[in-house]
Design a protein around this nucleic acid. Sequence first.
DNA 1: GTGAAAGCGCTAACAG
DNA 2: CTGTTAGCGCTTTCAC
Lengths: 312, 312
Amino acid sequence: MGISEEVTRKILDHAAKINYTPNQLAQSLRTGKTNIIVFMVEDISNHFFAKLARIIEVIAYEKGYKVIFCSNENDDKKTVELIHLFRDRKVDGYIIIPSAGVKEEISLLRDSKIPLVLFDRYFPDLDTNYVIIDNRNAAYKATRHVTENGFRNIGFVTIDVQQTQMQDRMKGYLEAMEEKGLEPHMLLLPYRSYKTPEGRKAIAAFFQQNSALDAVFFSTNYLTLTGLSVIKENDPEKLRELGIITFDDNDFFSIQTPSISAVAQPLEAIGTRLMEIMLELLGEKGEKEAPQETHQVILEASLEVRESTRAR
Amino acid sequence: MGISEEVTRKILDHAAKINYTPNQLAQSLRTGKTNIIVFMVEDISNHFFAKLARIIEVIAYEKGYKVIFCSNENDDKKTVELIHLFRDRKVDGYIIIPSAGVKEEISLLRDSKIPLVLFDRYFPDLDTNYVIIDNRNAAYKATRHVTENGFRNIGFVTIDVQQTQMQDRMKGYLEAMEEKGLEPHMLLLPYRSYKTPEGRKAIAAFFQQNSALDAVFFSTNYLTLTGLSVIKENDPEKLRELGIITFDDNDFFSIQTPSISAVAQPLEAIGTRLMEIMLELLGEKGEKEAPQETHQVILEASLEVRESTRAR
DNA sequence: GTGAAAGCGCTAACAG
DNA sequence: CTGTTAGCGCTTTCAC
């Protein structure tokens, strides 16, 4: 057509307001696609979640998706609020660590056909996509490792919640102890108490009352921090004598003296699988409604053996 | 009016589709307000940034704003891309750690009158809002503290970048050393090398070539981690002999043996001030265009003295 | 093939 | 003070 002149003018126009960029908001309103994925964790400042967030972020950006991180503080009300909030913003997908009481809301979200993947924990009687690790086996292997290195009185410090991942860790510990005919010693702290003086007192009391303990297994990274801090405060020598193992690895454990043995969750694998599933779900949406199966991935954690559990 | 019947029906309608919620996308398109604030840092998985992110998130949610976190990897290209991306999404405000070469882009963003606050570092010749700490003085005080406890050959391990915060830390160190008539020993590593074998080698070589060093000052948290790891690998005994101090505190430093002295940035204060400024800017927008002044906040860091720098 | 028109879901301005 | 209408900036459809 003979509109080359017009075209030229248009191009010039463009060059003039060189910094034209389409309004993504309008685009999203029209297309129903925001290219945003929500990544909801307990606490974004927790090392484990922050590392994972970074991995997710990198993969998502590669594929043209942006990630919104948020912390639900393991609180049902906040979790539901956040889900509603993002639903109203029409985000394309959800990666969520659910708090214990949001099964209904998660069920609703799943039914709405918006891509959804849970991780870290799940609802056994709800058919959703999820990526978790085999917590029971990881805790079992860790406990066995400690017993095999000659420790006999192994304490287990955990938090008193009904979440699957914590329950499974406890099961693994108990199973290994029973198998060896050893008596378990458990401290169940209320959630959130780990950063309070009461939590510290409870941990101190636990060690005092169980003075025969020769090793301790902390079930999550923040308990390890508090636990080690309490021990160091009350009885610094004990840090070298006690066998110590913990769930969730951290770079700082390697440079401790003694360095701390840990169950390391496979961060890269978790992040990669989460995004694989998410991207598949996102891609599928447009296609014909196949009776899509849910993806349920269980990964194995690895045991990082260090000085704190060496045979004495 | 006599539309009570209609009203009733409407209410019933509402009750029927009980889960009606306004489409935020359309609302934002119409009003030009998204209630989203961007929080752009170097790396969200870095402890310092993750903690700060959490503080910002809490304040923002209280005020009805959501936060999008992202990592610019200290890369100019990625920073610019991210800014464009969010500009097209019409976010309401930006809190940014700028990489070194984005002065122009930051200048443009500032001129567009969208609320903007920088932090951690700034551009000396660009009049923007920012919140930083007094890095020079913090490093000066830390170095002085080490010299006052009898250390003489104090090494300074840092990264070779032109960012104000790193330059200032170096200045503080040099100033304190000069004042005491001590000879400085510096290792300038290329950015990003801290996680490579080359970086580790360079650090090992530094300690080998400067065998008279009796103390070391790491200029940022990730260097401390790598540095301590290298020392532990090559000469574990040295960890107890060497005076050690580091920029950026971490809970794990307290439980180390010996515990590690650190310059602690005031996280709460930084987060609070950033959001105070941001909220003020957000509120102001609608009001009459007062010749608003920029806010330039310089906070003091505190010195956490622990075992690693005690007098020998 | 190109160009005009309709409409995503909301809010602001306007008329009754 | 209520009810209608225009339009935010885009994409998709439809007519040509």
